[in-house]
Structures are given as C-alpha cells and as structure tokens.
Write a protein that binds this DNA or RNA. Structure first.
Lengths: 347, 347
DNA sequence: TTATTTTATGCAAACGTTTGCATTAATTCG
DNA sequence: CGAATTAATGCAAACGTTTGCATAAAATAA
C-alpha cells in the first residue's frame, strides 16, 4: 500500500553515490559529469523519485510561495486579480496560497500570523474594509518579506502599492458625459471612508468645475456598499428631484445597471434622456441593453503587476528602493449607454 | 535590520529549558506544568517567537495544506467553489494553494507534479477540458493523498466526486416549461463530449418523453463553449425555423440571456411567446429583464462539500471507504422569464 | 522511612535537503 | 615525468521541530 516516498538517500544508496551528488545532479550543478547526471536522472525516473520541496524549503529557507489575502474570492474583481497573480507567479515558479479576510480585521490579523509561520516570501493583499491600523504588517518589513497592497491600500503608511488612478478615471468618465452634451450630471458614490471612492468623487467634481458646471449636492448620492439595490434606490431618488439629471456617473457597474433599469421602467430613455457611465467593466456591462459605458480597471493586469513587483522585490534583496507605487492606466470603454453623439468610437 | 526569526532553541536557551519542553509548552502538551507553560508563553511573546510551520511540516510530514486546480479562477462558478473550499479549510486549519490549468492537459500534469513535491495532503480539482487520461492522479492514490473531483469529473475512473444531478436538474427545468404550457421546447446544449452537458440533454429529452412531446432534432442546438455569442446564434437559428419554439432550456445562463435579447430584438415576448430557463444561477440572471429562471447549482456549497469530504478523508487514514461520490441537491429558481402562469412562486 | 507511582523535564535522533570544504582522480603544463 | 591545475565526488553539518525514551524530582502509598 501507501509506501513512503523515495528520497535522495534511497537514490544514493541504489547508485552507490553520495546524497550530495544526487542533489547536485538533480538540480543541474555544473560540477557533475554528464554521465552521472544521466544515470541519476534515469534511476530517479525508475524509482519515481520526486524532490521533497518541503525539505528543500526548510533547508534553503525559501518556500517559493506567496500569500494572497482578499476580502472575498468570488467578487469578480478579486478573482481576476488572483488570476493575474497566479499566472505570473506560476511562470516564475512561485505558488500562491489564498486567504479570505471576509472584511474582518481580526481575521486579517490572524492570517498574517499564519503567513509568517508559513514563511511565505511575499504577500499581496487587498485590505479588509474594517482595517484602519497596519501594525500587523510591520513584522514583514522587519523580516524582509515584501508586502504589496492593491485596490484598497493603506493611507498614511509607507508601502508598496498597485493602484489605478481613481481620480483621473472618474474625471475622464465625467468629462466624457459632458462632451456628450450632459450638463446636469449625477454621481452615485461609494463609501466615502474608502479613499478610492473619495478620489472618484473628487475626479467627478473636478471635471464639472473645469467645464464650469455647478456642483449640486442633491445630485451626489453616497451609498454604503454600491450594491445593485442601493443603485436602484439612488436612481429613484434622482427621479424624484424637481429637475432630473441628464447624465450619471456611477462608482461601479452594479449601481449603473440597476439605475438604468429603474430609468427604463420609468420610461426614461438611456442614453437619450440620461446618459450613464459605470466603473469596472464587468462582463455584465456588455450584456445590459444598452451596453454600458464604463472604466476598464484592468483587474487582471493589476494582479500581474502586483506579482511582478513582488517577485522583483523578493529577488532584489539589497536594493535601495524601499517602497514602490505603481499606477495602472485605465480606459474609458465607450458603449451605447452614453452615446448621444455619433462621433465616438464604439467598442 | 532584518534579523532572522526567533526559534524554539533561542527560547530554550533564554529560559534554561530544553527545546522539547518549549515545543510541548507551545503546543499544549499535558505533561507540562502550568507554571512553565505560562513562562514560555510570556517569553515567546516577548521575543516575538512564532513557530516555523515549514520545519514542523517537515518533521511531522503534515503540511496542513491542500491544493486546488481549476481551469480558470475568474470564472464565477469556480471562484464560488474556491470560496467555499477556503472557508471550510480555514476553519479546519488547512491552507489552500491554487493553480489554474487553463484547460491545458500538460499544465494540469505539471501541476500535479508540483503538488506532489509540495506534499499537499489532499487535492480538489475540476479537470481541464483537454483531459482524457487520469494516469497523473494515480500517484496520489498510491501515496494516500485523497483527490476530490468536482464539476468536470472523470468518467470510467473510480474516484471521489462532488457533482450535481445534471440529468435531474435538466429534467426539472424542462418539466417546468411544460407545466407553463410550452409544447415546442428547444434546447441550447453544451459540448456533448462533456458528460455534464450530455446528461442535461438527456434530462431534457426524458422530460419531453414523459409528457408525450415529440423530440425534434431541429430544436436541439449544440454549442462548443456555451458562450454569449453562440447563444445569440442559436436563438437566430430558432427564429429561422418554419415554426418557432415556445420554450427554451439552455445549458447555462449566458446563452439563455443572449437568446432572450435576440428574441426581444425580434419583438418576440419573453415569456409570453417563448419561456426561457437557464442553468447556474449566475448573478446576472437577477439583472436581465425579465429575470431569468434558472437552476441553482450551489457552487459555494459544492466547494464546502469538497473540502469537507477531503479533510474527512485526510483524517480517516484507515477507513474502509475507498471512494465516495456526493451528489448535491439543485433548485429550480423560478423567475419571470418562464412565468406564464401566475401559480408559481417567485423568488 | 522506604518503595512505588506520578509529574515534569531533558536527551538525542530523526525528517530530506543543501552546501562549504576536503578529497581523490584525471588532465594539463613546464 | 613530476608539479600544478582542473574536474568530479564525498563528508558532515545544518536548517527548526517533534517525539520515544530516559531521568530526576516530587508526591503518594506501604
């Protein structure tokens, strides 16, 4: 039955060689002759030898594994990021261990303890929305284990970060609406205690200012979690205003879509009477009718960038760079939901 | 700067105790007096000792980690399953390492090699769609490492499997359409080389037979990948038939939704002129108008079930059970896209 | 008080690799 | 041909825990 695995020593005994020679032969050390290398390789295949990475990790103090902490895996944005991380990490020989903080600060702390014990060589994390203190990451800095934050990143705390320019993206989205002829533009905002949503609101305001449009507080609706349901509520509130908006920029696609549906049920035409732009470019934005104009936030690339930066930092042990922040380009993907003029390109 | 971590030995020296005592104190061995236990605990906190899991894994030959292989992480179904796995595994003290096969057989094989080297204690996998041979899993059986297949599971190969009853679910969906008064029911089928889609087709046929409805081959449209685009094509083909169908059961939600949109553009009313049922209960099914009736395939629960079965098998080393197959219940979630009669419940 | 049991701790080996250094054999050079 | 160099392999220690067994000290029983 379940015989225990074949080890270097077994191979060594079998071939009358020392374990060191076997080790070197397997890992391609130059000092080993081609003859023995082949011999070892052959015997290894024959006996089904497979190197014990745990023993190797233990000895070398290199686990070749990185840890990821996300609030929830089944949020599409995060699954895309994870996918990007896995792809890049795999190509570099790193494994990826995943944890969900479920937006709990306590759990996030507990996970960092586990990751430290597991000796991951680096960490990529999107903070839980409860997290206000970052002390639980200090130990990694001390140990020389790089930590990369993405999306929800710490403020007032020096760290490696991968972000998009939320401000700029929101500005682009809002300006696009202005160029489409909208002059009363509303905004469905995310929780203002999260800086990314704050930035988006700022970008929206700046675009209005630049084009000399008034900033009307009644057109700015803050939500708690940008849910589909909250989107509908906000849309209804807008319709109840003395004067309805003719443009809407939403901080995510869910609220944008539910708003569109509310408008349509009220027989208000999108984009003719109100043009709508979302944020994130979720697959659903290509399904809703009219297709949703939105910001492509490049989640997959964000994952790749995070992994690439992380592994670079793992390898460059003695670089002078302490922290790095990478800002990714975003695109405005123009679709039917905002197309009031024929001039724009459709994607 | 980055001092190396504090070890058991360091603690031992500091307290003039032997490493074994420290080890036992930390792990709560009963033979250690409360006094020393407290002493050790205190010193451990003081020096910031944290146990080296790698060393422990190495010594105990227990890594407390399981491997997951999915075709692609960012497919919503898989991210839900992974979420379920992580949640359960975390509660039991297991870590989860993720790999994407990207539907490549070669990559899947390579990953199994890595997992063997990493000494994971169990594996949960959804097969790549290229996989026809299962020889690369035999080694795990030999080593006593349990493997659980879900969703796309091997045929003609004894193994642990978590599945839903595709046949039964399709039967339910089709019968529901019949009960709604449909008599010409079409089916958009998945790739018939995959058994789950074959089963769904069979369930559809059986429902028709049971209700003495003819099986019309022109109403059965096979697709390659059940994409949104293929769904639209199929819908157009249906409309081109001499007599249009009045019901449609699709093997996933994407094709169902794109079909609905094609119908609506052709001014055919859903559900009045054609009732539509999908499969999977993707979030989008609650967004499309009318909301889509669909099969809830319980992806999250599938992940939990897989993790639970896996860990049970890891713990029960000498059980008499060789393999287990768990079939999960599915629900028909009735929504507007199939409601021609008022009698049904709406969710 | 002595023998016996219980309680608490220590000893030392082991887990499978890796690696600096030493050694031997083979080759090249003067 | 002997000395110096190069090439190929071996020795042995180390990585940080865990654990069976031994031991010492304390508590109990006789």
């Amino acid at each position: 039955m379940g015989n225990s695995r074949v080890t270097l020593k077994d191979l060594a005994k079998e071939l009358n060689l020392s374990p060191s020679t076997i080790s070197r032969a397997i890992s391609g050390h130059p000092a080993i002759s081609d003859a023995t290398r082949k011999l070892v390789q052959q015997k290894a295949d024959e006996l089904g030898f497979t190197p014990n990475s745990i023993a190797s990790s233990f000895r070398k103090k290199k686990t070749q594994s990185i840890g990821i902490i996300v609030p929830k895996i089944d949020i599409h944005f995060h699954s895309l990021v994870i996918s990007g991380i896995e792809e890049y990490a795999y190509s570099k020989g790193y494994n990826v261990t995943i944890f969900q903080s479920k937006d709990s600060f306590e759990r996030e702390k507990e996970i960092t303890r586990i990751l430290q014990n597991r000796m991951v060589e680096g960490i990529i994390i999107c903070l839980s929305n409860e997290t206000k203190s970052y002390a639980h990451f200090k130990k990694f800095t001390k140990l020389g284990v790089p930590v990369i934050f993405y999306d929800r990143v710490p403020t007032n705390f020096n760290a490696n970060k991968i972000v998009i320019n939320d401000y700029e993206s929101a500005f682009k989205a809002t300006e696009h609406l202005i160029q489409q002829g909208c002059s009363r533009i509303a905004h469905i905002a995310g929780n203002q205690s999260t800086h990314i949503f704050k930035d988006r609101l700022e970008g929206y305001k700046t675009a209005l200012k630049k084009h000399k449009l008034p900033i009307d507080p009644s057109l700015i609706l803050e939500t708690k979690n940008l849910t589909y349901e909250e989107g509908a509520e906000c849309a209804k509130k807008m319709l109840a205003l003395p004067e309805s908006p003719d443009g809407l920029f939403c901080s995510n696609d869910y609220t944008a879509i539910s708003a569109i549906q509310v408008f349509q049920k009220a027989h208000i035409k999108v984009p003719e009477q109100i043009a709508v732009v979302g944020f994130s470019n979720y697959p659903i934005s290509r399904v809703i009718e009219p297709n949703l104009t939105t910001i492509n936030d490049r989640a997959f690339q964000m994952g790749q960038a995070a992994a690439s930066l992380l592994i670079r930092q793992i390898d460059d042990t003695d670089s002078f760079v302490e922290f790095e922040t990478i800002t990714l380009k975003t695109d405005l993907v123009v679709r039917a939901s905002s197309m009031r003029k024929a001039s724009d390109t459709k994607l």
